[in-house]
Every structure is written in C-alpha cells, then in structure tokens.
C-alpha cells in the first residue's frame, strides 16, 4: 500500500490530478471518520475532510516523500478539526432556508419522529451516547483518543501527527481514558 501511495504521489507531483483521485479513494473513509469523531457532525466532518484533501493536494510539494503519507494527511485533517473546534459556532441555523429548495428550512432536514425498530434504535442510541461522550472530552484528550482507538494508530504516529513528544501523548491518552471511564462506566 505504501509503495502504491508513493507512486501515486509521484504522479501527482508531475501534475496528474487523476492519480490524486486514487489517493483520495484510499484514505477518504479514515479521514472522514477522524473528522466525524472529532466534530460529531456529519456535515461539518465532510466539509473538513474535503478541505483536508484539497489542502494536501495544494501543498503536496511540501510533503517529504520518504515519510508516511497517512501521517501527513492526518496531521492536516487533525489540525483543521482542532481549528474548527476552537472557533466553533453553529454552522447551520434551523431557520435557514436550504439552498436549492423553495422555502424548505433546516427543520425539514431533521430526522422524523417515527420510531425505528427497537434493537436498531438501541444500537443507534448506544452509538450516539458514546459519540456524545467522545465529543464531551476536552479537545486535547479527544484528538489522542480518536487517533489511538478509532484510527488505531501507534503512539509514535500520534506523536508525529500532533507534533507532541511521545510522553505528552501518553499522558493525554491516560487522562482521556480516565475521563471516558468516568463518563461511560454506568452504561
């Protein structure tokens, strides 16, 4: 996989945009997942994930080909997420009209109240509770927890992505785990 990615990056460096499309295909789910777990909102997550890829493309020349591409890409995505979290304000207002529709507002985009089948509802609820608890974590714990337990990266990779010493990453993971234990132990 790394060799393939390297080849594609070289093609992108020569100016071939289609090669970048293949790179996006390889990483889109991971980057989207990362953004979603960090931001807790699909819409925003897609925006940020999109932007991360566009930035990666624009700045591809500053990527050192001998390093791991995923680390570099996650770093861009994580930084964008952290930025977004810091200046977070509601990105949509429920009263706002949906673009391209005639008089439909965001209320119409909300899930309906029709009950789902029971077990589906339960897993959905559990998933949502967990996601809500992840979102509750302070930003600096959230990013390490997401990178460690959802993206399943090593401490070394996390330290490269966040540009923090491994010791700091470890401490944050420990604190994040403690916080999660507190929040999730009654489930």
């Amino acid at each position: 996989m790394d060799a393939l990615v390297k080849l594609r990056i070289k093609q992108v460096l020569k100016g071939d945009q289609n090669a970048f499309g293949e790179v996006v295909e390889l990483y889109k789910d991971k980057v989207f997942q990362l953004c979603f777990r960090m931001l807790g909102n699909r819409h925003e997550a897609e925006d940020i994930a999109q932007e991360a890829f566009v930035r990666a493309y624009v700045n591809i020349r500053s990527f050192n080909i001998d390093l791991k591409f995923s680390t570099w890409l996650y770093r861009i995505a994580t930084n964008l997420c952290i930025d977004r979290m810091r200046k977070k304000k509601p990105s949509v207002y429920l009263d706002a009209e949906v673009a391209g529709t005639d008089g439909l507002d965001m209320y119409s985009q909300l899930a309906s109240d029709i009950p789902l089948p029971e077990d589906e509802l339960e897993t959905l609820e559990l998933q949502e509770t967990i996601q809500a608890q992840i979102i509750k974590l302070p930003e600096k714990y959230r990013s390490v927890i997401v990178l460690k337990y959802i993206e399943e990266l090593s401490l070394k990779e996390i330290s490269d992505i966040l540009d923090l010493p491994i010791g700091t990453v470890k401490t944050r993971i420990h604190r994040g785990r403690e916080a999660l234990r507190n929040q999730l132990r009654h489930l």
Binding site: L126, I134, I150, E178, L180, R181, Q183, L184, R185, L187
Partner: peptide, 18 residues
Amino acid sequence: ELKKAIALVQSTSHIAAP
C-alpha cells in the same frame, strides 16, 4: 471500567465517507 470504556469507543461502528 477502563477496558469497557475503550471497548465502547472502539465499538462505534466505522462510518464511511459519502
């Protein structure tokens, strides 16, 4: 409880990009 918290976080089903 620590292990449970981790397992729960990991259990959040993997979501795919649109």
